[in-house]
Amino acid sequence: MAAFGHTFPFYADPKPTFPMDTTLSVIITIFLTALVTFIIILPGIRGKTRLFWLLRVVTSLFIGAVILAVNFSSEWSVGQVSTNTSYKAFSSERISANVGLQVGLGGVNITLTGIPVHQLNETINYNEEFTWHLGGNYAEEYTKALEKGLPDPVLYLAEKFTPRSPCGLYNQYRLAGHYSSAMLWVAFLCWLLANVMLSMPVLIYGGHMLLAAGIFQLLALLFFSMATSFSAHCPLRLGTAVLRTHHGPAFWITLTTGLLCVLLGLVMVVAHRMQPHRLKAFFNQSAEDLTLKWSPEEGELLSPRYRFMAESPEPQDIPLSETSSEVCCKEKHPKDSDCAL
Rank of each mutant, 00 (worst) to 15 (best):
M1C: 14
F4P: 04
H6T: 12
H6I: 04
T7F: 11
D13R: 14
P14V: 04
F18V: 05
P19C: 00
T23Y: 06
L24Y: 12
I27Q: 01
I28E: 11
L32E: 07
L32K: 08
T33N: 06
F38W: 06
I40M: 03
I40A: 04
I41A: 01
G44H: 01
G44F: 15
G44T: 03
G44A: 02
I45W: 00
V57G: 02
V58N: 00
T59N: 02
L61C: 00
I67A: 15
A69F: 02
E75A: 14
N84W: 15
T85F: 04
I95S: 06
A97M: 05
L101A: 12
G104S: 08
G106F: 06
G107R: 07
I110Q: 04
L112N: 04
L112A: 02
V117W: 02
Q119N: 01
Y126E: 05
E128P: 03
E128L: 07
E129P: 03
F130M: 10
A139V: 06
A145H: 07
L146A: 13
G149T: 12
P151N: 08
P153G: 09
P153K: 09
Y156L: 05
A158N: 08
T162Q: 13
S165I: 06
C167L: 12
C167T: 11
G168K: 15
Q172G: 03
G177S: 10
A182R: 12
M183L: 06
L184C: 06
W185S: 06
M200N: 15
M209D: 09
L210G: 08
A212P: 00
G214Q: 01
I215R: 13
L221V: 07
F223A: 07
A227Y: 06
S229W: 07
F230R: 14
L238I: 11
T240H: 11
W252L: 03
I253F: 02
T256H: 02
T257W: 03
G258T: 00
L260N: 00
L260I: 11
L260K: 02
L263I: 10
L264N: 12
L266I: 12
M274T: 09
Q275I: 08
Q275A: 10
H277N: 07
F282H: 04
N284G: 08
E288Y: 10
E288D: 08
L301K: 14
L302I: 05
R305P: 00
R307I: 07
R307D: 03
M309L: 14
E311H: 06
E311N: 05
S312I: 06
P313L: 09
P313K: 14
P315E: 02
I318W: 05
I318E: 05
P319F: 00
L320V: 09
C328I: 11
C328Q: 13
C329R: 10
K332F: 08
H333M: 13
D336C: 10
D338N: 15
L341F: 10
